[in-house]
Computed example of a mutant assay.
Amino acid sequence: MIDFRYHLVSLISVFLALAVGIALGAGPLKESIGNTLTGQVDQLRTEKDQLRAEADHLSSNLADSRDAISALTPSVLEGVLGGRRVAVVTLGEVDSAVVDSVGAAIQQAGGAVTAVADVTAAWTDPTRTAFRQSLAGTMITYLDPAPAQDAGADVELAEALAQGLSSTSPTDPNALSENAGVLLDLLTGDSGLVTVTSPVTQPADAVVVLAGPITPVDEAVPTLAPTATPSGSASPRPTPTETASPTDSASRKARLDAWAAISQAVQRRSAGAVVVTGEVADDSLVRTIRTDDALSKLLTTVDGVRTPQGLLAVPLGLADRIAGVVGQYGAGPQATAAMPDRTALPPIERVAAQPPAEPSPSPTESAASTGQG
């Protein structure tokens, strides 16, 4: 059994060790310890100053590179789209400044924005599944070509949006088809699945899909030039409806599946499409496309749209896709190249699919042509 003397010896040992340490620290080892600590502090301060100088140098180089890209952008983009009309579709939360900058880039590339369509959270709201299925059933009769019978509501709605933005009147290449107008009315009316900044009057040749989240950042979004809304109005674009935040993997997968269906539909029903984002997150649409063998061979993607190089890549990637080249561009995961090649499309020529029917001659004209009267 341990007695009191054992505890006493332990306490004495502790105090002796403490006393020896104090004596050595205040005596023979004082200068050595102090010099060592002072040297370490000086070294850390020097390293911090060096890292700060390197960071400032890199920031300056990055700013110079961005300025150079912005300065070269007008000449690089000139004539790239050859007069193509482009619809912009936003999925999820997308900063309005990014939408405006993309519109300006399209204009500088020789294109025109025909519509800005925001797909709302109602598109994937699980409480409205039955409503969307019913609406999709109504829309099938207006789709040409119609999707497969087992396509499902997501695909049918996606095809309806794509046709609504791109279908041309058979008698006027500068007007939407009648069915396209009906489809847009169904999507933007009481259903609330889509909102548009202004009435859509012209069909798009190609589509840019902005896949959120692309949120505001501290530094300004690169803007190439002021741009107006498709109708020519200078009024500001309304803030898009935010996408509901999924709380489980099933909700996230349902959202990505619906967004992927939209991306494929606009590619199928137009001359070409490009899917664009900011940062490539693990559960983002761009990451989903790039990691899927079938989708990555069909759809072109661009990341880093908030940077000058990313913004420049949007019209270039779209022109390449119209020309038949598929690529994954940017600095994010699974990108295959930093920038698309420059492909200048030939100016587009628009002709009616069928000439308007000539009016039948009146009875008087018929009689005159045969010499009767």
Rank of each mutant, 00 (worst) to 15 (best):
Trp259Gly: 01
Pro238Ile: 03
Val280Lys: 13
Thr197Met: 03
Gln163Met: 08
Glu156Ala: 12
Asp190Ile: 07
Val276Arg: 08
Ala204Met: 06
Ser169Val: 10
Gly232Cys: 08
Asn174Asp: 12
Ala261Glu: 09
Val221His: 01
Thr215Tyr: 05
Leu161Trp: 11
Ile214Glu: 07
Leu210Arg: 02
Thr247Met: 13
Glu178Leu: 13
Val200Ser: 05
Asp282Glu: 15
Ala234Met: 12
Pro213Val: 07
Val266Cys: 07
Val200Phe: 00
Lys253Met: 15
Thr223Phe: 04
Val286Asp: 00
Thr239Lys: 01
Thr201Pro: 00
Ala265Thr: 06
Leu193Tyr: 01
Gln267Asp: 13
Asp185Asn: 14
Glu279Gly: 04
Pro226Gly: 05
Ala160Lys: 13
Asn174Met: 00
Gly212Arg: 02
Val266Trp: 02
Pro222Leu: 01
Val274Pro: 11
Arg255Phe: 09
Arg255Ile: 12
Ala273Met: 11
Val221Cys: 01
Asp218Lys: 15
Gln267Trp: 10
Asp257Gly: 06
Thr188Ala: 12
Gln264Asp: 14
Thr171Pro: 01
Val274His: 11
Asp205Gln: 08
Ala265Pro: 04
Pro230Thr: 13
Asp283Gly: 12
Ser270Phe: 01
Arg252Leu: 15
Ala225Gly: 01
Ser177His: 02
Arg255Thr: 12
Gln163Asn: 04
Ser233Pro: 04
Ala211Asn: 12
Val217Ile: 13
Leu157Arg: 14
Thr201Gln: 06
Gly212Met: 06
Pro222Trp: 03
Val200Trp: 01
Leu186Arg: 15
Thr277Lys: 03
Leu183Asn: 07
Pro213Gly: 05
Ala258Lys: 01
Glu178Phe: 14
Glu156Trp: 02
Ala175Ile: 04
